[in-house]
Design a protein around this nucleic acid. Structure first.
Lengths: 143, 143
DNA sequence: TATATTTGCTTGCATTTTGCAAGTGCAATA
DNA sequence: TATTGCACTTGCAAAATGCAAGCAAATATA
């Protein structure tokens, strides 16, 4: 269903085949910032992803082991999405994109704090934030 | 012509609006590996980009200051493409993608050397390779 | 208990992007 | 002068994206 057609064995190419579309990394971004998101949370993001695209991207990311679904602790009607280890490991890429964007475009002021921290000690930030993400992973996967 | 519609002010989103399509980073990859490429060189890459897509992507990357065109020293019929500083600064992102891919998929053996070097001392590699890329930049931009 | 609302999707269709094949014009070579 | 090489462009089919509406299960409300 959500199978990938690999264009080549190049690691860059293979990676892009999984998450190199217009939307996947924005979903990952939301999960990195919020740790856990419901379907509705993703729809609320300012880029306004279409609901059908969101559904297919979530499937793709799940079938490629980047995110998992969890039962929402408060309601059976809700679903929680969160990053797997494989998804958490996209953080270094996200950080570098952030730094590149900081160098070449204007960053919204609410990101200044994180950018400053990143520039000061990237490795420390990476380590502590990775730890935080792992800590927030729940054990309760939806079967 | 090749203008970008920004989906939001988020730095991740803005960056993806420029090079977050299926092909742009593969063009950048070719330039990082080969320093300089002709139009035909890009077409020869194993992923087999369509010629019209290549043309529009090259325009997009050029109008966003990531690549420049140069006169080919040997022939007026040929055009050389190379990375600008802004393009060279995508190297850290490329490196992280490489490392992610190494962790989660099988890498072709001809990339083993570079991966090993990367894992040993990422910062050193980044520094020396950036230097190499800058050294290879030619001064002769096509007007 | 009946009804309305929320939530996570799916479906249908228009628009945009991508993919493929062929063609064009200038430069270099024979 | 004719032929080939190179950097594209053009036309059309296929796929991905975008938009609006719909739908079933779960929850909240009357």
């Amino acid at each position: 269903m959500t199978d990938i057609k690999k264009r080549s064995d190049c690691p860059i190419s293979s990676s892009l085949d999984i998450w190199g579309d217009k939307w996947s990394l924005l979903i990952v971004r939301d999960l990195i910032f919020s740790m856990q998101c419901t379907y509705g949370d993703f729809l609320k993001s300012e880029e306004k992803i279409a609901t059908n695209i969101l559904a297919t991207r979530l499937q793709m990311l799940e079938s490629n082991g980047i995110i998992t679904k969890l039962n929402h602790p408060e309601s059976k009607a809700k679903v929680l999405y969160q990053l797997t280890q494989k998804g958490i490991d996209l953080l270094p890429i996200m950080i570098e994109i952030h730094l590149w964007a900081d160098k070449y475009s204007t960053i919204p002021p609410e990101r200044n704090a994180i950018i400053k921290e990143l520039k000061n000690n990237k490795e420390a930030f990476l380590k502590s934030y990775t730890k935080l993400l792992k800590k927030n992973q729940m054990k309760d996967p939806l079967e």
